[in-house]
Simulated assay, not measured.
Amino acid sequence: MSDLIVYGNDFNFMPLPKLTEFEIDIFMQIISELNENRELELFFMDLAYEIWTKKHQSAKETLENFYKLADKLLSFKVKYSVKNKHYAFICFEKLELIDEDPDPRIKIKAQEDFYELITNLQMGFTKFELKEFMSLSGKYTKTLYRLLKQFRNTGLLKIDWSEFCKIMNIPESYKQADIDKRILNPAIKELSAEQNLFTNEKKTIFKNLTYKKIKDPKGRGRGGKVIGIEFYFTPEPKRDELKEMIENLARTEKEMEKNSGREPKIHILTGEEVTELTAYISRHFQLKNQEYGGYDTCKIKDLKYIDKDNKKMVWGLMLNQENYKEFEMFFDSIAHMKNALKLD
């Protein structure tokens, strides 16, 4: 399983189905694997081991709980809007459990639009450690954690109250006092406490974490209607993470060249061997449509060095996102590819 979860920010503002804590952990592990391929095959006990041991469940109980999750995932629908476009689609096309003793396996296929929503990092992305996420208690704490991680470099999250309640899946029957007592205060306490997550060294996930409800200024008295909520915490040092990722991958490639013959470095997200091409996979570009005019949005699905006509070239597998057709492209070098596709 991947050590990191990385996904496009739009996913944070998409209400999940009403999942239990166990189901959320499984679901996020599946999300962590959606990087190179929207169709996955995973060993069930690899997927559920941390939860299985944490909850002290038998393998049979864990498997039964997964059956319940499968029903929710296959009926999981998304509705969201971007500018003047409105989207509605299912998230998973297929989920198959192959119950073979002693290693049951899971096959799951993400729907194309949902896969794109998760893997499109060009408009900003959220990342965090899977073990840290799974160490948290309660579904509300886990959801708030994801939201706050998006704003880790600013230390400020402002959100409309109705949208916040929808994302958090807060029951409509809860009064403000119930939300404070049952949801916000326990979550704030855990997320701002010192914890021994991975080593003997203590760590605070969000330092100085607090919140403030925003009330309608037109309301009367102290009991005005809540229209928003703001969270404040000490921000993490700001970095250009995408640039840093590219630089780190390029540095790794140089080290690999110097240490030829040694064991290659493996990309932490994909499990594939790291090359200087890795940073450009999943990037988007515009390609002129020769038949209809205008430009189609395309995505780089894979890049490799190949020998073609006795010459080392860059081979690319591309996806036209207008018609979902794949096609190949060839480049003399990375510089040629960046120039041809107008990549920064």
Results as ranks from 00 to 15, higher is better:
residue 1 M to G: 10
residue 6 V to L: 11
residue 10 D to N: 15
residue 10 D to P: 02
residue 12 N to Y: 04
residue 14 M to V: 13
residue 19 L to Y: 07
residue 22 F to C: 03
residue 23 E to N: 09
residue 24 I to P: 08
residue 26 I to L: 13
residue 27 F to N: 02
residue 29 Q to M: 06
residue 31 I to C: 08
residue 35 N to Q: 03
residue 36 E to T: 11
residue 42 L to S: 07
residue 43 F to W: 01
residue 44 F to M: 10
residue 47 L to I: 02
residue 53 T to M: 10
residue 53 T to P: 05
residue 56 H to N: 14
residue 58 S to T: 12
residue 60 K to N: 09
residue 60 K to A: 08
residue 60 K to G: 07
residue 68 K to G: 01
residue 69 L to K: 04
residue 71 D to T: 15
residue 75 S to L: 02
residue 79 K to W: 06
residue 82 V to P: 02
residue 84 N to P: 05
residue 95 L to C: 09
residue 97 L to M: 14
residue 103 D to E: 03
residue 104 P to E: 11
residue 104 P to N: 07
residue 111 Q to D: 12
residue 113 D to Y: 03
residue 116 E to N: 15
residue 116 E to Q: 15
residue 117 L to T: 13
residue 118 I to L: 15
residue 118 I to V: 12
residue 119 T to N: 12
residue 122 Q to K: 13
residue 124 G to V: 01
residue 125 F to S: 12
residue 128 F to T: 04
residue 129 E to W: 03
residue 135 S to W: 09
residue 137 S to Q: 14
residue 141 T to L: 05
residue 143 T to E: 10
residue 155 G to R: 06
residue 156 L to N: 15
residue 156 L to G: 04
residue 157 L to R: 04
residue 158 K to C: 13
residue 163 E to G: 10
residue 164 F to S: 00
residue 169 N to D: 13
residue 174 Y to H: 03
residue 174 Y to L: 01
residue 174 Y to A: 01
residue 174 Y to S: 08
residue 176 Q to K: 10
residue 177 A to D: 11
residue 178 D to G: 11
residue 183 I to L: 00
residue 185 N to G: 07
residue 189 K to Q: 12
residue 191 L to Y: 03
residue 192 S to N: 08
residue 195 Q to S: 04
residue 197 L to E: 01
residue 198 F to P: 01
residue 199 T to P: 06
residue 200 N to T: 11
residue 207 K to L: 06
residue 207 K to H: 11
residue 209 L to N: 02
residue 210 T to V: 14
residue 213 K to A: 05
residue 218 K to H: 07
residue 222 R to P: 02
residue 222 R to S: 14
residue 224 G to F: 07
residue 224 G to V: 03
residue 226 V to M: 08
residue 226 V to P: 01
residue 231 F to G: 05
residue 231 F to S: 03
residue 232 Y to I: 07
residue 234 T to L: 12
residue 239 R to D: 05
residue 241 E to W: 06
residue 247 E to W: 04
residue 251 R to W: 05
residue 252 T to G: 09
residue 253 E to N: 15
residue 261 G to K: 09
residue 261 G to F: 08
residue 263 E to W: 02
residue 266 I to Q: 06
residue 272 E to K: 15
residue 273 E to F: 14
residue 274 V to F: 11
residue 277 L to P: 03
residue 278 T to C: 04
residue 279 A to G: 06
residue 280 Y to R: 13
residue 284 H to P: 00
residue 284 H to A: 12
residue 285 F to W: 05
residue 290 Q to R: 10
residue 294 G to F: 08
residue 297 T to C: 07
residue 301 K to N: 10
residue 302 D to W: 00
residue 302 D to S: 09
residue 303 L to S: 00
residue 307 D to L: 12
residue 308 K to L: 13
residue 308 K to D: 13
residue 310 N to C: 00
residue 312 K to C: 01
residue 315 W to N: 09
residue 322 E to A: 09
residue 325 K to I: 01
residue 326 E to T: 14
residue 328 E to W: 06
residue 329 M to H: 07
residue 329 M to P: 00
residue 330 F to Y: 13
residue 331 F to R: 09
residue 331 F to C: 08
residue 332 D to G: 00
residue 336 H to V: 07
residue 336 H to P: 06
residue 336 H to C: 09
residue 341 L to G: 00
residue 342 K to G: 04
residue 343 L to G: 05
residue 344 D to W: 05
